[in-house]
């Protein structure tokens, strides 16, 4: 994993904790996002936060395509590299 993916992963962990559904330390980057309370409304919120943070327009279905923080960080890293 490269530095950028690491940074995105840390940022995603921070966002999930900020949404208040789970405590920090109670999950890993491989925990399914669905288990972290990321339902559709939070998935859309995360898309807005991704847009603000990375200037990247993503569709909420990215959460179904990349169902863990680790996979999502990898997917976002690839999109940023391609942008």
């Amino acid at each position: 994993m490269n530095t950028q993916t690491d940074a995105i992963e840390s940022w995603l962990v921070e966002r999930v904790v900020a949404y208040g559904k789970v405590d920090s330390g109670s999950f890993t980057p491989d925990t399914p996002l669905a288990e972290l309370g990321l339902d559709s409304v939070y998935a859309l919120t995360l898309c807005g936060d991704i847009e603000d943070e990375f200037d990247l327009d993503v569709d909420p279905t990215i959460v179904w395509d990349h169902p863990t923080i680790r996979e999502l960080a990898g997917g976002l890293s690839e999109r940023l590299a391609a942008a």
Partner: peptide
């Protein structure tokens, strides 16, 4: 409904 305070969500919905 605290998630609905988030500007990022309002902009996307």
């Amino acid at each position: 409904f605290d998630v609905f305070d988030r500007v990022a969500l309002i902009r996307r919905m």
